[in-house]
C-alpha cells in the first residue's frame, strides 16, 4: 500500500515537472509567463515602456499622445486632489491621520489584509478613512475619488509595482486565483474574456483601435479617457469592459473586482507607477 502511494506521489511529481507551467502554476510562475509573453510578442519594446499602454506598441498614435501629455488633461484633478488631501474633515483630522506615510502611498496597494481576509485597494482605504472620520464615502467610478487618487498616484510616480501574496495565508492565494479565473473566463453574450482582447490580440485592430497589451495595464490609473471626457478609476474601466461584452458588470470595489485588481496588479510587479495617465 505504502509503495503504491509513494509511486503515485513520484508519478505526480514527475508529471508536474513535465507539465511545467500548467501543474506548477504558482503566482511567481504565472507572472514570469505573463511578462515574458509580451516581451516575446513585442521584442522591440523595452519592458518599462509597457506602462505606456498602446502607445508602447504604436508609434503613430504615440506622437499625438505625447503632445497631449505636455498639457495633461488630468492636471486639474491632481490639484483638486491635493486640496482634498490638505483640507481637514469636519472633525479636524485629515487624510494624513489615516495615511501617515502619505501622500506617496500608492505602491502599497492593493494588499492582502490577513485580519480581514480580503484585498484592500487604495480607493477602498480612502473611503474607509473618510467613514472612520464621520465623512460620507465617495462614489467609486469618477469625480472626487478620481481627484484624490490622481494626487496620490502622481505623488507615487516611479514607485515600483510590488504586490505581495503572503505565503502564510492560503486565503491570499485563493483571492489571487479567483482574480486569475475572472481574467481568463469568457463572459457576457459576446463571450469575451479580458484575455481574448488583451492577451490574445494586442497589436491587432478592433475596427480602427489597436488593442493594448495587458502588461502595464494597472500602472497608469486613474486615467483621463478621451472617450469619457473625464478621469475614471480602474474599476470603472473593468465595469465598462464587462458591459461591452454584454455581461452584467460587478459592483465596483466589490470582491470580484478587488480580486481581479489583485491578480492583474501582481502580473505587473516590477513596473513603475505612472498614474494618472491619458488614453484614447
Amino acid at each position: 500500500m505504502n509503495k503504491i502511494i509513494m509511486l503515485t506521489a513520484a508519478l505526480v511529481m514527475v508529471l508536474g515537472l513535465t507539465w511545467g507551467g500548467v501543474a506548477l502554476a504558482t503566482p511567481q510562475a504565472d507572472q514570469a509567463i505573463w511578462q515574458s509573453y509580451y516581451q516575446k510578442r513585442f521584442p522591440n519594446v523595452p519592458k518599462e515602456d509597457f506602462i505606456n499602454g498602446v502607445y508602447a506598441i504604436d508609434p503613430v498614435s504615440r506622437e499625438s499622445w505625447e503632445a497631449i501629455e505636455e498639457f495633461p488633461p488630468y492636471e486639474m484633478a491632481i490639484s483638486q486632489g491635493e486640496k482634498m488631501w490638505n483640507t481637514p474633515f469636519a472633525n479636524g483630522k485629515t487624510y494624513r491621520d489615516c495615511f501617515p506615510n502619505g501622500p506617496a502611498i500608492a505602491g502599497k496597494y492593493p494588499y492582502w489584509d490577513k485580519e480581514r481576509g480580503m484585498v484592500v485597494t487604495l480607493p477602498l482605504a480612502i473611503n474607509e478613512c473618510r467613514e472612520a472620520n464621520g465623512e460620507g464615502p465617495l462614489k467609486y467610478k469618477k469625480g472626487p475619488i478620481a481627484d484624490i487618487l490622481s494626487y496620490l498616484r502622481y505623488q507615487s510616480r516611479g514607485q515600483l509595482t510590488k504586490v505581495e501574496i503572503p505565503e502564510d495565508d492560503p486565503k491570499a492565494l485563493e483571492a489571487y486565483e479567483k482574480g486569475k479565473q475572472f481574467y481568463f473566463a469568457r463572459r457576457g453574450q459576446l463571450n469575451f474574456s479580458c484575455a481574448n482582447c488583451h492577451v490574445q490580440n494586442p497589436g491587432n485592430l478592433l475596427r480602427s483601435d489597436i488593442l493594448s497589451p495587458a502588461l502595464g495595464h494597472t500602472t497608469h490609473f486613474p486615467v483621463y479617457r478621451s472617450k469619457w471626457g473625464e478621469i475614471g478609476t480602474l474599476h470603472r474601466r473593468f465595469s465598462g469592459c464587462n458591459k461591452q461584452v454584454r455581461a452584467k458588470p460587478f459592483k465596483v470595489q466589490g470582491e470580484e473586482y478587488r480580486n481581479l485588481e489583485y491578480f492583474l496588479t501582481y502580473m505587473q510587479n516590477g513596473l513603475p507607477l505612472n498614474g494618472p495617465g491619458a488614453r484614447k
Partner: peptide, 16 residues
C-alpha cells in the same frame, strides 16, 4: 463583422 474582419465597402476594418 467589420470590427474584426476586412470586408467589402468598409472603411478601416479590424484584423483580428
Amino acid at each position: 463583422c467589420m470590427a474584426c474582419h476586412v470586408m467589402p465597402d468598409i472603411e478601416s476594418p479590424g484584423n483580428i
